[in-house]
Simulated assay, not measured.
Amino acid sequence: MIPSKDGYFALYNNSDGHSIRSRPIIAWDDEGDALVVGSHGLKTAGSIAGFSGITRHAVPVVAAVPGGGWLVDCADEDGNSWTDRIVAWGIQADGTARPITTDPDGVTGDPTESVAKCRIYHPDTSAADEGRGWPAPAAASS
């Protein structure tokens, strides 16, 4: 087993089939498979439902601040769209901030990775701020 030191993460499709979540890769096994923490120890990343690939975050997150009510609209290559609530902002060592969302299982990730299109906004955004390629957020349906 070789420890993973370079910021690699396993990507997973959320149970809704759209959102992408990530888990840090802890190590690589003797066959070169990525290992992540499972409920009973290390598991190969590919053995967990929804596995979709591996990515690398070159700049580490050094702090986090609350999401402040921000939302992200995402769309995939097939034209499916969805909205996630940003639960926190990950502040990276270089000073940039990345949005962090979570799924019902508590797996967190950057919603802007592996999507065709995304838009981050605050629900208090005025109509004058719209028009950047996305329509205004739709009213909730019952």
Rank of each mutant, 00 (worst) to 15 (best):
K5S: 10
K5C: 09
Y8P: 00
A10C: 07
Y12D: 02
N14C: 12
S15V: 03
S15H: 14
G17P: 04
H18F: 06
S19W: 06
R21P: 01
S22G: 04
R23E: 08
I25Q: 00
I26C: 07
I26T: 14
D29R: 11
D30K: 09
E31T: 11
G32P: 04
A34P: 01
A34K: 00
V37A: 14
V37C: 04
G38P: 05
G38K: 07
S39Y: 05
H40K: 14
G41L: 05
G41D: 05
G41I: 09
L42N: 00
G46M: 11
S47P: 00
G50Y: 02
F51Q: 02
F51R: 01
S52E: 10
G53H: 05
I54D: 06
I54A: 06
T55R: 11
T55I: 11
V59W: 10
V59S: 12
V62G: 04
A63S: 14
P66G: 08
P66I: 05
P66Y: 10
W70G: 03
W70Q: 13
W70I: 03
L71M: 15
C74H: 06
C74M: 11
A75E: 15
D76N: 15
D76V: 09
D78N: 08
W82D: 02
V87G: 01
A88P: 01
A88N: 06
W89K: 01
W89T: 05
G90C: 07
Q92S: 13
A93I: 03
D94F: 05
G95I: 03
T96V: 04
A97T: 13
I100M: 14
T101G: 11
T101Q: 06
D103K: 02
G106D: 08
V107Q: 07
T108C: 14
T108E: 13
G109H: 01
T112I: 03
T112C: 07
E113I: 14
E113L: 15
V115E: 00
K117N: 04
I120S: 05
Y121E: 04
H122C: 08
P123T: 11
P123G: 10
D124F: 15
A128I: 12
D129C: 08
E130P: 04
G131V: 07
W134D: 03
W134C: 07
P137S: 02
A138M: 15
A138L: 11
A140E: 10
S142E: 13
